[in-house]
Design a protein around this nucleic acid. Structure first.
Lengths: 224, 224
DNA sequence: GTCTATAACCGGATAGAC
DNA sequence: GTCTATCCGGTTATAGAC
């Protein structure tokens, strides 16, 4: 009996949270992150300011929630990997899909980028708190690398992490690029992804000397 | 007569600005950027809050001022380039010197990094407003590349810009690395600088196909 | 113990008098 | 160019409702 009530309450609570979240997203899109105030968001969601802060510890946390939810939409990716084994195709597919998913919300995504760069921020992609999100994101690239063509001669172990970093970089570039089309991002993605694949393919060749060994040692040392 | 008075006034004004700047730096070091308030800074400088804002449009602008001034200290660099022509040595010298100069103020340097990532921020290293600082910083690498060993087979034109980006990256890593020693940054700098030099040296070889051509086209397209 | 609402705090930034 | 007074919005404290 008690439990049932608790559940109902939980469900209503969840709805309230959702309402606030959606009101926030609408306002962020309409006015940008800074010009949308928490007071407006709360009012637009029909709750008091204090309630908004009950569900989201900070204004920025709403943006993180958005990021998390978007990353969870990965069904298409898994399906695509079944059809396509080319490494370049897989990498560019994932990144292009993310950009497509984020595009309507581009205006306020720099908030996340900003936090990536503030030491100790819980919203940083490198933080303890976002370990779960990060691991899931890296896992996508683990799948992308599995049984792909060309098979990575070396570096197979570090490649998913490196590709995740690469993805962050491309997304950052896209977010910062104010242009209306994503022409520049497209050029960057195309060129660099080809280089990566070429590097992965050639990494075993003698000319490269111990370069892939050195990279893998480097990554291991830096990742703690 | 009038001019003399104006000059005197200007000089006094410059002193006030300096006093505020120094008070701010002391407080930023002692308490960090966020915990040092503009009210404290103004009080510590012996001026009113409004006066502090007369000289610095925002709290963050004080940090930019610090960055600008530090970059201007480049005598040692020019002297070093006269003695040493090795590209790796030159690059690592410049970056290590910057880190040494910034080290006492490491605690609040992320403020600059943050702005690099906010579109339209005048404090961003990519902004119109900081073009002058940026050009000076790139010019250092133009000198580093001039008559260096090995001579860049290709890419000579884009290399200074690329090295400036590289420097930003290493500095960012260092700022974000919370460790007390700069061991990780050292490893990263050593390994990657060697790779860069190796790449620069080999970029003309046939195995690389048109890769340096592609990189240079890419940079040109992306730099507007 | 879960949730909502009101009032207050704090600090960056601005307006405008002198 | 300097000051005081004020605004504004993120955040917090807290009282109480369910």
């Amino acid at each position: 009996m008690k439990e049932k009530r608790a559940k109902k309450t939980q469900a209503r609570s969840q709805e309230t949270r959702e309402t606030i979240y959606e009101a926030a997203l609408v306002l962020f899109q309409k006015k940008g992150f800074e010009d949308a105030t928490m007071r407006e968001i709360a009012a637009s969601a029909g709750v008091a300011l204090g309630s908004a802060y009950y569900y989201f510890r900070t204004k920025e946390e709403v943006v993180l929630e958005f990021y998390k939810r978007t990353l969870e939409k990965d069904d298409q990716i898994k399906a695509y990997f079944k059809e396509e084994t080319g490494l370049k195709e897989r990498i560019t597919y994932v990144i292009r899909l993310r950009i497509k998913q984020f595009a309507p919300f581009k205006k306020f995504l720099w908030v996340l980028a900003k936090n990536a760069v503030v030491p100790g921020s819980p919203l940083s992609p490198f933080s303890e708190e976002s370990a779960e999100i990060r691991d899931k994101a890296i896992a996508i690239f683990e799948e992308a690398v599995a049984d792909c063509k060309p098979a990575p001669a070396q570096l197979a172990k570090e490649l998913p992490f490196l590709l995740w970093l690469y993805q962050l970089g491309i997304l950052l570039f896209w977010v910062l690029d104010q242009g209306k089309t994503m022409r520049k991002t497209d050029i960057l993605l195309n060129t660099t992804s080809e280089m990566i694949v070429w590097l992965v393919k050639s990494s075993g060749l003698p000319i490269f000397g111990g370069i892939s060994k050195r990279i893998s040692t480097l990554i291991q040392e830096l990742r703690d």
